[in-house]
Each structure stands twice: as C-alpha cells, then as structure tokens.
Design a protein around this nucleic acid. Structure first.
Lengths: 330, 330
DNA sequence: CTGAAAGCGCTTACAG
DNA sequence: CTGAAAGCGCTTACAG
C-alpha cells in the first residue's frame, strides 16, 4: 500500500482541542454555532498539527466534490484557456476546482468525458462543444448534475445556455466599417452550416440593409486567402472585408500584401475573436473580440446559482456581447 | 440535501449479478481472478444498470484520487495549455485527471495552491513556477506526494526536475545564423538574473566563441524593440539578432520595419518559443521552439513512473531539447 | 452549545 | 474462485 504520509485527521484535532470531531467539523463549516472559546482551541490545534481537511472524504459524505467538469475540444485552442480562467475567476473563490477534458471534437470522446465526469461526482458540468447531440447530455442530467452549454443555440431541458451575441457582433462590425466610410463591404465566412456562420451572416445583412457579398470558404487562414482572391476577381472589388474569424482575416491580409493593396487605405480588413496574434501582426488587426474570459465568468455565475440552489427555475439563456477592438486594419 | 440522482451502486450490481460487492470490485479492478462466467454476468449487470463506479469513494478507500495537481502561473499564457495537454496525453490513458491552479506568480497563491492539492489528495504535483522557494514544497513532500518541478534548475530532495535545454538551444540558434552567413550576431536578452537568461547567453557565447554583443532589456515586445534600437545606434550594426523570446523578436521586427530594414536580407531575426503568432506575422519568424507539449509528455512519463512505484530512486533531472523552426526571418 | 453513532460507496485484509 | 466485515475521513441526523 502506498505511503500516506502521516497527515493528521479530524480526530487528532478534536483530541488536542478536547472536543469531538463533530464540533471540529462544525467549527470548520459553520453549520452550527460553536462557542468562541472552543473555536479558538480548535483553530490552535489545527494550526499546531498542520491539519488540512480531506476534501475527498468530505466529498463522499456530503455528496459534493467541489469539482466542476469542463468539457472542451482542445485546451490548446487559445479561446479555451481564457474560458477556463474566467470560470475559475468566479468558481475558485467559492472553493471549486475544475477538471478539464479535451475531446478533439470527437463524439465518442465527448461521451466518455461526460461519463467520467459522472464517475468523478462533479457538482456541475460546463460543456463547450458545438455539434453534440442533445441525448449525449442525458446521463449527466439524470445524475442530477447541472449542465451548462457554451456556444450553440440548442435549447434543451435541464441545460443552461450561454453564447456570444454573434448576430449583434457582425452587425456592429459592419456598422463600424460603414461609419469609417467604406462603401463595398464583403463578408468572408466559413461553411454556412458550421458554428456561428448563419448568425454572423444575418447580422452583416441586417446592418447593411441588403444581401451584400458573402463568400463561404473555410474557417482558416487558407480559407480567408481563398475568399479574398475570389473577391479580387470581381468586377467591383470591395473596399472592405469582414472575416468570420481572425485566422481568416490574416489570410486575407496575406493576399492583400501579395497584391500590394494598402490596408486600410485601399482595403479594410476586420476579423472576429481577437486572438493574441491580432495585435502582433502588421497592420494590427481590428476585430470583434470574442470575450472568452467574460463568457467564462458569466458561466461561473450561472453555475454558482445552480450549485447554491438559489436558482432552481427552468433553463436560462444568456447572451454575452462582443466588443469592438479598433486597431490599424480598419 | 442535494438531489443525488438515483445512480446505481456497486451493491445493486452485485445483487443483479448474484455475487458479492467484493467480486464486482475485483472484476472491475482485476486484482484477483474472477471466473469468466461470473465476470460476464457482472458486465451484463453493469451494462443494464448503467453503473459507473464512484471515483470519490474509491479514492477515499484506496488512498489514490487518480488526480494530478498542476500548479502554473497562468493558463492564459499559451505555453501552459500545451504543457497541460502533453501531461494529459500520457496521464489520461492511465486514468488520471488534472486539477490546474493559476498562481499569477504570487508566492502566497502558490502556497495556497499547494495546500489545496494536499487537501484534494492529489497523487502527484507538477509545479511550473520559476522563483519558488524550495521550502514551499516541503509540506507536499512530507505528505508523501511525488513532486515534479518544471523549469528552474534547483535540485532538491524528493523533487524531480524537468526543463528545456536552454544553453543548447541558444547555441544551436547561433550556429544556424553562422551557417547562413551572418557575421555580426547580437543577442537581445531579458534581465540577466531572470528565468533562463544566463543559460541562453552562455549557449550563445559558446557557439560564437567570443563574448559577442548582448543587450539586456525586458522579456517583452517593448524590450525587444528597445534592444534593437540600441543595436542600431552602434558603430557596427549587427546583421543578425537572436532574441530571448518571440515577443522580443516581434518587437525587433517592429523596429526593422520602421527603419525600412529588409529582413532577412539586411538583418536576420530569430526568437525563442514558437508562439502561435510566429507563423502568422510577416515575415514569418524563425525560432527555437520551446517544446511545451513534449515537456508535458516527458513530465507525464516521469510522474507515471513515480505513481506506479517503478521508480523509487533519488530525484531525476531530465533535459528536453528545443527544436529549430526555420521560417522566413532568418 | 456539544457528542455518539451511523453512513457516504467503495476496497481490502482475512477467511474459506 | 468467492464473501462478510472492517474501514478510508469526513458530515449529519439524532439526542441531550
């Protein structure tokens, strides 16, 4: 058997303080009044012994592991660390830690991850995967674990929902370009059915007041370049492009550079997300920041409401606004 | 009391399979032979009931939480998600999950994080903070928890050590520049006493065979720019600069652009780390990749050896080589 | 304001 | 190859 160290247990604290384990427990958790003198002796004993309560034992008995499960595609995608940090900003001070699982967007791995979260008795799950089938969440819901879905639109019984205001963000970006005097504003988007594509196209069109010019390519640097090349072949070349994410915008800028097109004088380029590189490239990218950390914080707040039992109503949907970051490219 | 769902327990599986909980446990853990027929009935029962073992209960009894603590400055710094992913690459298949705590480099938060890891009964701790005092790790060591230190040089009883080969990497970068025909190679570094500064300067000088030109500024974009400006003021302006990280290299490139210096024809620029932006800027940055994910994997391997009891010897030190990524800037 | 005892859901000697 | 019982370290009715 593994060496356990000889960490003190609650019983030793009780003995040293001359009280019962019950009283030590209550002094620690505040669920029942403890006389000031007793409390002081207990705190002294804890200090003297270097006692640290065993969270695992507490979790087993109390039915709360003080752990939140975060299921995401890939922590290596810079959006998710910010999300995780935002969650921790709110949940950490309340005593919760996170267990993060990467699924690579694979459905089998997603299901395995959710299973594991149940096994680990997490107190809540935040789930950040776009295309998951609703039924995959069912076992978690049945286990009585609050679930929060990040991104996606699918309303579902027992699942709170949180996402960026994609339509509003696209509209704001478009209006910004109009306000800067650009007149032929195109939109380079990813595949129409993927992620927030539909909402962003909708916002673009609302702000424009007409269908505009929409090129569907891929959500990547190459996709952005390809979309830009197509736009350059048009009879009337646009004087501004809104790209559905920053990687695409960087691809569009690549093409502009190759064609010696001055940005932002001859062509404005905007992105979405505000990845780290946005401020590192030249010209610096003007973009709609996907407020990952704010989303994480909002998620933490929602979960805390569920965990504390303050909120027992039907699923809620919260929409987080994006933020315009004006730099050099538009 | 919180609603627990009505998840099946091991006893119900045992009952349905017509055996004892003991046998179910052994069928699951393989610590004792179970007849094939019995095993099959147990697996059927598990399937039928949708049983998932309670990891918390198991952890309490077995003294192993199947959890690793990862203590880092900030998950938002792109190095650490890669590190975490590398750890998970190795530890995940073995059934371990990670609890990540951000310390912002604050010593009080570091100590609190370590305390928490003890409370949570983690089976091992990976600790990625440069300037921690050795004694802060003492409580963890005394609790019998294996500790692995990432970065830093400080050998310490009971603590395995893992870091990049900074000296070798700087030497390799310098030799690469020499091989490309550059003749006046300068080095822009951060404060001499911070992080891996000393090792990198040493490697640069070894490869160069003389003291060379070293500017100490800050580990930031502004620091890189400042160092570059100083170099431009010299009588003999260098034809190549090695920067101690990519952000500094980007700062140096900013200055080169402002002064209409052609990169890499008039000036070569190299960085360290290979951050995401390195391939997104123009010209794309040639750099020594800090192999974060490989470091994570190596760390996972070391920890697994300790966890399995295969390795009970004195602390080990493992040095991970960096990798040259040749792009456009040098 | 405080304590004795049961119990959270497993694993593990001990016994056969 | 299998089972009954103890116990991991806490919290929580129950009782006073």
């Amino acid at each position: 058997m593994r060496f356990r160290g000889d960490r003190p247990r609650i019983g030793q604290v009780a003995q040293l303080a001359g009280v019962s384990a019950t009283t030590v427990s209550h002094a620690l958790n505040g669920r029942r009044p403890v006389s000031e003198a007793t409390r002081q002796r207990i705190l002294d004993a804890i200090d003297q012994l270097g006692y640290r309560p065993n969270v695992v034992a507490r979790g087993l008995r109390a039915g709360r592991s003080m752990t939140i499960g975060l299921v995401i595609p890939d922590i290596t995608n810079p959006f998710y660390p910010l999300l995780a940090r935002g969650l921790q900003d709110v949940l950490g001070p309340a005593g919760y830690d996170e267990i993060i699982t990467n699924t690579n967007g694979d459905r089998d791995l997603e299901r395995a991850a959710l299973d594991k979260m149940i096994s680990r008795q997490v107190d809540a799950v935040a789930f950040a995967v776009f295309d998951t089938h609703a039924e995959d969440l069912q076992p978690v819901i049945e286990a009585g674990i609050p679930v929060l879905r990040l991104g996606g639109r699918l309303a579902q019984r027992g699942v709170d929902l949180l996402h960026t205001d994609d339509e509003g963000a696209a509209a704001e970006a478009t209006r910004y370009l109009i306000g800067r005097g650009y007149r032929r504003i195109a939109f380079i988007c990813g595949p129409a059915a993927q992620g927030p594509a539909a909402e962003r196209v909708a916002g673009y069109r609302v702000a424009l007041g007409k269908p505009g010019i929409v090129e569907h390519t891929e959500f990547s640097r190459a996709g952005g370049a390809q979309g830009m090349l197509r736009l350059l072949e048009r009879r009337h070349v646009p004087d501004a492009v809104l790209c559905a994410n920053d990687m695409m915008a960087i691809g569009a800028l690549d093409v502009a550079r190759q064609h010696a097109i001055e940005v932002p004088d001859q062509l404005a380029v905007m992105g979405f997300d505000d990845i780290e590189a946005a401020s590192l490239i030249s010209p610096q990218l003007t973009t709609m920041a996907n407020p990952a950390r704010e989303i994480g914080r909002a998620a933490g707040g929602l979960l805390l409401d569920r965990l504390s039992g303050n909120e027992t109503g039907p699923p809620r949907e919260i929409v987080v606004p994006a933020r315009l970051v004006a730099r050099q490219s538009a």
